[in-house]
Simulated scan of single mutants.
Amino acid sequence: MILLLAGTTEARNLAGYLAAHDVACVASLAGVTRDPVAYPVETRVGGFGGADGFCAYLDAAGITAVIDATHPFATRITERTARICAARGVPYLRYERPMWLSRQGDTWHEAADVADLARVIPRGKRIFLATGRQSVGDMTHLEHSAIWARVIDAPDAPFPLPRGDWIVGRPPFSQADEQVLFTDLKPDWLVVKNAGGAAGRAKLDAARACGMSVAMIARPKGPDGITRREQLLDALEWALTL
Rank of each mutant, 00 (worst) to 15 (best):
V168E: 05
G169Y: 09
R170P: 02
R170F: 10
F173E: 13
S174Q: 09
A176K: 15
D177G: 15
E178G: 14
F182W: 09
F182R: 12
T183D: 15
L185T: 11
L185H: 11
K186Q: 15
P187K: 12
P187R: 07
D188I: 08
D188E: 13
W189C: 08
W189G: 05
W189S: 03
V192E: 01
V192G: 04
V192R: 00
K193V: 05
K193P: 14
N194I: 05
N194S: 01
A195E: 07
G197T: 03
A198H: 13
A199Y: 04
A199D: 12
A199E: 12
G200I: 04
R201C: 01
R201A: 13
K203W: 01
L204M: 13
L204P: 06
D205W: 08
A207M: 05
A207H: 09
A207Q: 09
A207G: 10
R208G: 03
R208C: 08
A209D: 12
M212L: 14
M212K: 03
V214I: 15
V214T: 14
A215L: 00
A215P: 08
I217P: 04
I217N: 07
A218R: 10
A218S: 11
R219M: 10
P220T: 07
P220C: 08
K221M: 11
K221S: 14
G222M: 10
G222N: 11
P223R: 10
D224V: 07
D224R: 06
D224I: 00
G225M: 03
G225L: 05
